[in-house]
């Protein structure tokens, strides 16, 4: 990978501070984050191959108030990538590229609404008293 090309991309983002450039970076960063999460998800769930006890042990280790906070970031990443991916697909398939900035603000409002609902639903998971004693 050419280092100059990477520097060029970063300079380009600093120079073109607009919605298209911002959502391009947001899509890449959330995409890389979700790919890393997919690996961890596979690691935790694949314990089912070793049987019920191993699975429950590993699943229990990732269910705590700390992981509930991480879950908020995960879900935010999923919603950003999902809504922005829909914006890209609409622009690509229906030639709506001239509307891409308006669509960005529409999905931004949908994102905020979804995140408020998410935090309300996940709220009980932030309370350590709701978890069984001894994990």
């Amino acid at each position: 990978m050419s280092n100059n090309k990477l520097q060029e991309t970063i300079r380009d983002a600093a120079l073109n501070k607009n919605i298209g450039s911002f959502s391009y970076w947001l899509h890449r960063l959330t995409g890389i984050g979700l790919a890393v999460y997919l690996l961890m998800h596979t690691f935790v769930l694949s314990s089912a191959i070793s049987g019920e006890a191993v699975f429950n042990d590993r699943m229990g280790a990732v269910q705590s108030p700390f992981f509930a906070v991480l879950e908020i970031f995960l879900i935010a990443g999923v919603f950003i990538h999902m809504l922005n991916g829909l914006r890209i697909t609409l622009a690509d398939f229906f030639g709506w590229s001239r509307m891409h900035k308006s669509i960005f603000w529409i999905i931004a409002i949908i994102f905020i609404a979804l995140m408020i609902i998410t935090i309300l639903l996940i709220w009980p998971k932030f309370n350590p008293a709701n978890y069984p004693v001894g994990g």
Partner: peptide, 23 residues
């Protein structure tokens, strides 16, 4: 897929009534 998956295993999984997700 993820909208339904998140609903079942993340958002509407009520820890106060069903406890931790297990096998």
């Amino acid at each position: 897929f993820l909208v339904t998956h998140l609903n079942v295993h993340h958002l509407f999984h009520d820890i106060t009534s069903t406890g931790l997700i297990n096998f």
